[in-house]
Design a protein around this nucleic acid. Structure first.
Length: 648
DNA sequence: GCTTAGGGTTAG
């Protein structure tokens, strides 16, 4: 019998240990077996790293099944290791393994013989904790059961194994190999993290997912034909991520798994095949060579779909890229105040970033269609920008003489009159700090003394209530008096982004520039040391060598304004934001504590929040409304507005 | 009630 050597420790009563379990005050003591010492027909506890895993899939029996191969430093050959086979009624009762390189602590693994080799199975009282295998990640265990022990020495074991994982190339794949849609090549298989935006049942054997991960494939790919299909989609997301969507065809045994997901869910697709598309004969020759994204039948190589946890190693990176895309698609809708400039580079910056991607797709032969072709979208946005500018100018002229709808009075009152040309606005004097307070206009002075912000022009325009702004046609300019009820981002360090004035590419401040020891960044205002990766990428394609422009800091902030008649979301950025923040230049706010403090003080005064006894001051501000698409929602931007507060 | 799958690509 194998009792003496069962190795499983003391945690289950009466399983054959000769001595009573040694206990500590906080829990039981376990002994752990090195993989090189594991013998068949024993039950063991062990610490190990995941070398391979097949995520849970429904078996033909009653349970979910999962296959794992474990390794540890005791093995001479990492191709060896212990294969394990686990069954459970639910996926949540199986080891919560997300990635190769994850670290597991398993208690009561029963080791049997299968075809002459050891195979780990669940023994009575089996339990498994899983830890992120990356150094520096939280040591929070992911458990397959409600009750488990986790002692400081467990954490030590995890940290020790992490070092080994980090130094073992076969295991630290997460740091080197995080494929995105942008990386895929024809014929290859990928484990991809993404978000489902739309889905449809194609037939009995196939489900279609439309997914995105924030990137765009470089290879042209097949798009599904939707006639006759009912598409279940997350509407708000569809609008924002058009041009980033990829169609994934999911077959056979994965259909039931696929149907458990819903639009908006994050999913991990393992073994996604980027297959060369063979069009049917009647379509042959119609298009360039395409790939199609397919999840074939079977579970080979861990093929399957699993819910993507927010603590999956891929999640944060993907989320950050997605956020930037959405921010850009939202901010892309901002007009600039530089309508008068003839320089074509004076398009809205964030908008331009989207266009840049479109151009890139174009050069890569990206296939587009009428419904969500980013190329078309990008090109037409430029046109729209131009027409939008004209329209806005026209409106300025029309406003006085045109009465539309029920807001005639407001329209007239709030209209920027003919005399106030765009050029005048552009050149409107931005006063020195506090100079507005001593304005010679007595009416203004009375107003300024009681508000947190002042307008730097358009004083002849009367105030429009927000409810009227919200129902007004666009584009239009208004003067508001409202309070700041919320703003975004809440962390002032994120008030500034990096922006390339050459290509209008916009990104969040990268981690390398956030570091404390980045002295250079700390001293600089506005200019960063960070090269524009977009320009670099484009240049490396087009020319041999060219100077890569460095990116500059700009403000991009969103305000929620409320005046009691309604609330309105308005963006503020670039020069408008600099004027607003009393000419405090944008900078790396991760580095410049003093600027951060000033901005924090301003924001705290403007928006004390619900917990504060202090009421938010009223803000005088100028906003302009606009739309990107004719039918699109009205968007708002703050301009010609400046703080009338002193930093504490 | 005691299986299921037992890593190593579909072929749309």
């Amino acid at each position: 019998m194998s009792r003496i050597n069962d190795g499983a420790g003391p945690s289950t009563g009466g399983h054959g240990n000769n001595r009573p379990p040694p206990k500590t005050r906080t829990g039981r003591k376990y002994s752990y077996t090195k993989l090189c010492d594991v013998k068949v027909r024993t039950t063991v506890n062990l610490y190990a790293a995941v070398k391979f895993f097949k995520p849970p899939f429904p078996s033909r029996g009653t349970d979910y099944c999962m296959v794992v191969r474990l390794v540890d430093p005791s093995l001479d050959d990492l191709n060896e290791g212990l294969k394990c086979l686990f069954f459970a009624k639910e996926e949540s009762l199986l080891p919560q393994i997300y990635s190769i390189g994850d670290i597991v602590r398993i208690h009561r693994l029963k080791v049997d013989n299968y075809r002459g080799a050891p195979q780990g199975n669940k023994g009575p009282g089996f339990s498994c904790l899983v830890f992120d295998g990356r150094q520096g990640a939280p040591t929070q265990p992911r458990s397959d059961s409600q009750n488990f022990t986790f002692e400081p020495e467990d954490e030590e074991k995890v940290l020790e194994l992490r070092q080994w994982v980090t130094l073992t190339p076969e295991l630290n794949v997460m740091t080197s190999d995080c494929p995105t849609l942008a990386d895929v090549e024809e014929g290859q298989y990928y484990d991809l993290s993404c978000q489902i935006v739309s889905m449809a049942r194609v037939d009995e054997t196939c489900v279609l997912f439309q997914v995105w991960d924030g990137t765009i494939p470089a290879v042209p790919f097949r798009k599904a034909e939707f006639h006759g299909l009912s598409l279940d989609q997350k509407d708000d997301l569809v609008q924002k991520v058009k041009g980033h969507l990829v169609d994934v065809f999911i077959f056979d045994n994965h259909v039931s798994t696929a149907l458990k997901f819903k639009p908006g869910d994050f999913v991990r697709i393992q073994n996604l095949h980027v297959a060369k598309y063979k069009p049917p004969d009647n379509e042959a020759g119609q298009s360039d060579e395409l790939v199609e994204f397919v999840v074939h039948k079977g579970t080979s190589f861990g093929r399957g779909l699993t819910a993507l946890s927010s603590d999956h190693p891929n999640f944060k990176d993907m989320e950050s890229v997605m956020k930037q895309v959405i921010e850009r698609s939202t901010a892309a809708d901002l007009p600039t105040s530089e309508q008068h400039e003839t320089d074509t580079a004076a398009h809205g910056p964030v908008k331009r970033a989207t266009t840049g991607e479109s151009l890139d797709q174009n050069s890569e032969g990206m296939l587009v269609d009428d419904t969500d072709g980013n190329v078309q979208q990008g090109n037409s946005m430029d046109q729209e920008q131009d027409s939008n500018v004209q329209e806005r100018d026209n409106t300025v002229q029309q406003g006085d003489s045109t009465a539309q709808g029920s807001n005639v009075t407001h329209e007239r009152d709030s209209n920027v009159q003919k005399g106030s040309s765009n050029l005048n606005e552009k050149n409107s004097i931005v006063p020195e700090e506090g100079s507005l307070v001593s304005s010679s206009n007595s009416t203004d002075r009375r107003c300024l003394q009681e508000t947190g912000t002042v307008i730097t022009g358009h004083h002849h325009i009367t105030v429009t209530p927000i409810h009227a702004v919200l129902t007004h046609y666009t584009p239009f300019k208004f003067r508001l008096k409202a309070q700041l009820v919320d703003y975004s981002p809440r962390d002032v360090r994120e008030f500034c982004l990096l922006f390339c004035y050459a290509c209008n590419y916009c990104i969040e401040i990268p981690s390398s520039l956030k570091q404390k020891d980045c002295q250079k960044e700390g001293r600089q205002h506005s200019h960063s040391s960070f090269p524009c990766l977009w320009c670099k990428k484009t240049q490396s394609r087009n020319t041999e060598c060219a100077v890569v422009p460095t990116m500059q800091y700009i403000y991009v902030v969103k305000f929620i304004l409320d005046d009691g008649t309604g609330s309105l979301e308005a963006h503020m950025w670039k020069e408008h934001a600099e004027v607003f923040f009393k000419d405090l230049p944008p900078c790396n706010l991760y580095q410049r504590q003093e600027d951060r403090q000033v901005l924090s003080d301003y924001m705290h005064q403007l928006c004390p929040g619900a917990a504060s006894q202090t009421a938010a001051p009223w803000m005088e501000c100028c906003i302009m409304s606009y739309t990107v698409k004719d039918s699109g929602p009205a968007l708002y931007q703050i301009f010609d507005t400046s703080l009338a507060l002193e930093a504490a």
